[in-house]
Structure formats: C-alpha cells, structure tokens
Nucleic acid binder design. Structure first.
Lengths: 200, 200
DNA sequence: CTTGTTCAGGTGACAATGTCATCTGAAAAT
DNA sequence: ATTTTCAGATGACATTGTCACCTGAACAAG
C-alpha cells in the first residue's frame, strides 16, 4: 500500500532524517554547529524528539561517525574487489578514499577518528565500524605483499595516510612550505613499502 | 623590592594563571571541560576577567596550543643540539617528543593539531609556533640525510609520526589488533628512510 | 600634591543550548 | 473494546559564552 507507513517505519525515517541533519550541520560548521534543536528542526520534529532515538548528543554524533566508517569500509571493500587494477594501485585507491573524505568533509573526518563518546552502544558501533574499515585496508595490503607481513605494513600505511590527511585538513600541511602533495606522499610511501616487501 | 608588584606585572601573572588553568582543565576533561568561569575561578579572578586578556574562549585555547607548540619546538631544538647522539637517534628522539605529548596530554595534543580558531592574532601565533616546530624537525632530518632531500622526507616522517600518535591517542591503534607499538612504527619508518636516502 | 586617565577586574543580564520531567495521541497488542 | 507502548511536543532548568556597565587603584600630566 503506497503511502501507508507504520509506526516503526515512521520512527526509522525520523531517525534517518536526524542523522542526515546532524551530518549536514557538521559539514557546515563543525561539531559546535550541531545543535539538537536545529537537528530536530531540519528533521521536521521538535527539540526534544532526538532523545527518543539517541540518549544524548554525543551518541548522535558517534552514530554519524560510525555510519561514515561503515561507508569507508564498504568503499575499500569495493576497491579491493576491482580486478581491473593491480594490487599496488588498489592500495593507492583505498588510501585515496580516506584522503578524499578528509578533503570533502573535514569535520566528519575529524569526528571519525576522535575517541568515540556517548553511550556504550554507540561507542561499540563506532569501534566495530572502525575495526571493519581497518580490516578491509589490511586485506588490501595483504593482497599486495602477502598476509604474512601485512599487519606491520598496514599499520604503517594507515597511520601515515591518516597523518597526512589530518595535517592537511587542519591546514598544517601547507603546500608552499613542503612543496609536496598528500598524493605524492602516499605514493612515495606505497612505493617504499612495495620495494621493501619485495626485497625482504 | 620584594613583594611589590606593578599593575602590568599583576596583569601578566593573571594571564599566565588563566593559561595554566585552561591547560589543566583541558587535560582533565577535554575542550568541553574548559569553562571560562572555572578558568577564572582557578586563576583567582571572576568569570568576566578572562575577557580582559583574551577576546574569546577560542583565542584562549588557541594560545594554549601555541605555547605547547612553542615548547615542542624548543624540545626538538634541544634534541638536535645534543652532540652525544648520532643523527638517526636524534631524529628518533625528536619524533618521540611528539608522541610523548600525545600520550601524556592527549587533549592538548589534539588541540595543537586542530585548525586554530579565535581572533587573528591568536591564530597567527599558533601558526607561527607550528611552523617553528616543523622547521626544527626539518633541520633534524636535514642533519641525517642532507638538506637537499630533507623536505620531502621530513614531510613523510612528520605526517607519519602524527598519524601514529593521533590514532593511538584516539584509541584506534589497539595493540592487540596490530601487535605493533608506535615506537616500532616510527623506528621502522626512520630505518626505511635512512636506507632509502643512503641508496639514493 | 592634585587631578584626570587608563585599565584589570567585578557584576548583572541575556541568549543559546543540553537535558529532563511530564503530557498527549495514535498505533499496536490484548 | 480496552490497555499498553512509544514517538513526539512542551515547559522548565542549569550551564555557559558573551556583552554592557560599573568600580577602584595605579599611573601620568599639571
């Protein structure tokens, strides 16, 4: 029956609208710009309504982060499954997905890699999503250099890519000072690892 | 004359007390725990007094970050000037100074590498301090591999060390998942760079 | 020494915001 | 048909950043 929605469907739609509104406000002006009142207004409900779906503001934001980490994990999985690219390029693309989030949605990126706050359920969801994303990265690295030494090199690559992205996001990686782009840094690193793994 | 303080001396002392109080509160519970009222109380003044020294809360926090970046720059300078250590160890120690801040004062570390906010003067002070710290790192790398290629490798090292520290601070670098410590990561990276620079 | 000025600091006030207690109405279960 | 459940609305409150205004003492100019 088109147009007929049950109570749980309506609640789910509201929850979705709340998350989308929170993400929009976050993109617009950072965490301080995410106001529960404004989130409610944009979702078409009142100021107290968000509390029917999230215990508090931290939990709402942590859930936004968890969803973003889930999408990242999915992106990396898709990149890994693409047979048209050689393993080294797949790794570059996977890391590029991370950096693209940082460039396009800096506040969201920051949130994704902050210590999750809020109620235990939200924290656990975010932690699990982060673990899944990292596992996908680990698999991509494993495809390149073998599962044996993958852990160590994956840790190196992930932390490096994150550092590059985070410093660029915060403006501390000005191109005129270092005359090197984030892509060049990652590419250099991937090459170094590829070479070292081969010679080891 | 002991005990006799002028007006400007008193004002300077208050400003210092405000910055110290803000840093303490930051360490205790993050940026949200830094309340201008509590900052004033701990500094022995009232709620509105901070506005005689800082235009707004953001400027106060940005000044705290600027001072921390200044101390970091000084630490790296000291490490570089120590003739007892070989260049590679000096580099390891310099990067270790960064990671130690992250471990001991995670909230301060986060603040140091966030986009500075507040009035232009505070932002400029923080930016200059960050530049100075990075220049010191650059010099340490230059001592190891020569000023020629130092820029590229310094960028690689700094971003990596920051990523390692930041992920560890935020809890996303759990040891049981990666079975590798931050020190091992940095050490591996320094060795790789050292080797690559030598062979280039 | 007197007088006017500067300025750190104090206080009242206000708006924004997170959060809770309470109420309501309709959907779902009985 | 009656009861229960629950998303949502609303009033209220404490906290907090910020501003306007006031005060008193240190300092300078005469």
């Amino acid at each position: 029956m088109i147009g007929v929605i049950s109570r749980v469907e309506s609640a789910a739609a509201t929850r979705r609208a709340l998350l989308d509104a929170a993400a929009d406000l976050l993109d617009g002006g950072g965490p301080d710009a995410v106001t529960l009142r404004e989130v409610g207004a944009r979702a078409g409900v009142s100021r107290g309504a968000p509390y029917r779906h999230f215990p508090d503001k931290d939990s709402l934001l942590t859930t936004v982060a968890a969803e973003a980490l889930d999408r990242l994990a999915e992106q990396v999985r898709a990149v890994r499954a693409d047979p048209r690219q050689p393993p080294a390029d797949r790794l570059r693309h996977a890391l590029s997905a991370l950096m693209t989030i940082g460039r396009r949605r800096p506040h969201l990126y920051r949130l994704m890699f902050t210590t999750p706050a809020g109620d235990p359920a939200a924290i656990q969801a975010a932690t699990r999503a982060a673990d899944r994303a990292m596992d996908e990265f680990l698999a991509v690295v494993g495809d390149l250099i073998g599962a044996g030494q993958a852990r160590q090199f994956a840790a190196l690559l992930l932390t490096s890519a994150h550092g590059i992205t985070d410093l660029e996001v915060s403006g501390h990686l000005s191109a005129d000072k270092w005359d090197i782009t984030a892509e060049e840094l990652v590419s250099t690193l991937v090459s170094m690892i590829d070479q070292r793994a081969r010679s080891a």
